[in-house]
Structure formats: structure tokens, C-alpha cells
Computed example of a mutant assay.
Amino acid sequence: MTDAQTCETIAEVFASTGEVLDPHTAIGVKAARECRRSLDTPMVVLGTAHPVKFPEAVEQAGVGKALELPAHLSDLFSREERCTVLANDLKTVQAFVSQHGNRGKPL
């Protein structure tokens, strides 16, 4: 996926939902949309970062919305990065997502 396609996806999602995506999540949304077999089947995409971490991409997308970190993320840039490796198993991923909650909104 090109940077232009990523920015297009960020702009499309913002125009239709008011939500600003980070570039990595935008790539996931575009891929999910392209792979989706039926509009009757819900699509789930996990957000991977806060868009404020990628101001250039958000600006290039033409969102025109100044982004600020929410109070609970005020220390984001000083936090240690974490990564959870999961088995390539649907039930394992579903359990992890269920356990850690859905903080997002449908796109």
C-alpha cells in the first residue's frame, strides 16, 4: 500500500466517522475492506497506535484536525514499548481481545 493510499484511507474514515486513524491502523482498515466477502459480516480492525504519534501522515491526509493526546496518554512518548506475541490461533486472539476490552468504535 502506498503512502497516498494510506492517507486516502485516513481521510475517508475521518469523513465518514469523525475518527482519525494512525497510518498502521489505516492500512489494516484498507486491507480488511478489500478482503471482506460480505457487508453482512462485521469487520473488526484493531487500532495499533494513537494518530498523534504520526502528525505528518494525519496532515498529509488533509484531516485538518489538531490532535492532542488524551490525559490518560500524556506520558505516551516516555513509556516503554510493549509487545504481546500470540499464537496464530483465532480463539487465542479472540480471548485476548475480549480480555483487554474494546476501546474503539466501529468504522
Rank of each mutant, 00 (worst) to 15 (best):
E12A: 15
E8W: 02
L39G: 05
G47A: 15
E59I: 01
V97L: 15
H24G: 05
T2P: 11
Q5N: 07
E80R: 09
E80M: 07
V63P: 01
F77T: 08
C35H: 08
H24D: 04
D75C: 06
K105T: 14
E19A: 12
C83L: 14
I27R: 15
H100G: 04
A11R: 15
V13Q: 10
R79Y: 00
E19C: 07
T41L: 05
E81Q: 08
V13E: 10
D89S: 13
R79W: 00
E68K: 13
A32S: 08
P70G: 02
I27G: 10
A95D: 13
L73R: 12
T41A: 06
N102W: 10
L90C: 03
S78Q: 07
R36I: 02
L73K: 09
V63W: 00
S38Q: 03
R82W: 01
F77L: 13
L76T: 00
K105C: 12
V63I: 01
P55G: 08
K91S: 13
G47Q: 11
K65Q: 14
E59F: 01
E68A: 11
T9E: 15
K53S: 10
L39C: 07
G47T: 07
V93W: 04
G47K: 03
E59Q: 06
L76P: 01
R36T: 08
K105Q: 14
G28T: 06
Q99F: 03
L46C: 12
D89E: 15
G101E: 14
G47C: 11
A4N: 02
K30S: 13
S78L: 07
D3Q: 10
V20Y: 12
H72E: 08
G18H: 06
N102Q: 12
T48S: 13
R103E: 12
P55S: 10
V93D: 09
P23W: 10
F54Y: 09
A71F: 03
